[in-house]
Design a protein around this nucleic acid. Structure first.
Lengths: 143, 143
DNA sequence: ACATATTCGGACACAAATGTCCTATTTTTT
DNA sequence: AAAAAATAGGACATTTGTGTCCGAATATGT
């Protein structure tokens, strides 16, 4: 459903949020270990999330990544997906027809629209906070 | 949502079904033109669909592809997707967690299950016949 | 000031998906 | 029998997604 890049991005964000909730800043190295992702690749993904200000970074000794508490509350899965994969995911025709749209729908357009919309809505209302709190007890589950 | 390979496969199948409903067998060349897909690549995809007997092929002069009417009625989008991309699509965790399952769900597992199941159900009950009849008037829409 | 620890960012490397080419095989027509 | 028209299938090529490496920039502690 989502690209690996997105999956890493979401998992990393959840982990950073968890650490931030405990008042801690987290290094890339630690993040990659905990979410079981390739370190350098994860770095690229986190850069993107920093640019759109979903997370914050600081360089140097004791640097790392953290997430402001208002961002933890307000950021949705969809925000992360958009930041990483772009906005196109949702607009693609099921049959890959270039002409297909609401005006000029393919033969299954209307049937698939509700499912698609449900998915978008779900991603839009699922926040980082919710995901983080959902696993607060058992930290080691992000891998 | 679906791979390009699947999209080509579905569109080709719909076109073959349309032709078969009119009692005609269709050549690869014509199919690729009509659905706007790369010819040689489409050939590979059709081979897969022939192997699982969704469509039939015959070689030689006046050869080509056709679809039996019972297949047109009984084949679903899901059948085509399974034949081309395999059975794994549906079982992957949204967060890409290797451990995630019904027994040991991730923090969003239960939230996303209904949407996922709706999508599978929808693909399962959408038949080739339905898709073909949906565009019977305006043939040139499969591109 | 210097050494160290960290992110940033460009260039490169590998893998998987997508696409192409060429020959073999089969069937029909002449 | 030979030529032509079509699919079958292996090998190769290109593009995109995923992943690595290394030096630059920046912040902290000594």
């Amino acid at each position: 459903m989502l690209s690996k890049t997105c999956e890493y991005g979401i998992r990393a964000t959840i982990f950073i949020a968890l650490q931030s909730l405990m008042g801690m800043r987290t290094s890339l190295k630690y993040i990659a270990e905990e979410i079981d992702s390739p370190e350098a690749f994860t770095a690229k993904i986190l850069q993107k999330l920093v640019r759109v200000k979903i997370i914050e970074s600081s360089k140097g000794v004791n640097g790392g990544f953290n997430m402001a508490s208002d961002r933890i509350k307000s950021t949705s899965v969809l925000d992360i997906v958009y930041a990483i994969d772009g906005y196109d995911i949702c607009n693609r025709c099921v049959l890959g027809l270039s002409q297909c749209s609401s005006n000029n729908p393919c033969s299954v357009h209307h049937k698939f629209r509700p499912v698609r919309e449900d998915l978008i809505a779900l991603m839009n209302k699922t926040t980082v906070e919710e995901m983080a709190l959902g696993i607060k007890d058992k930290l080691a589950i992000l891998r």
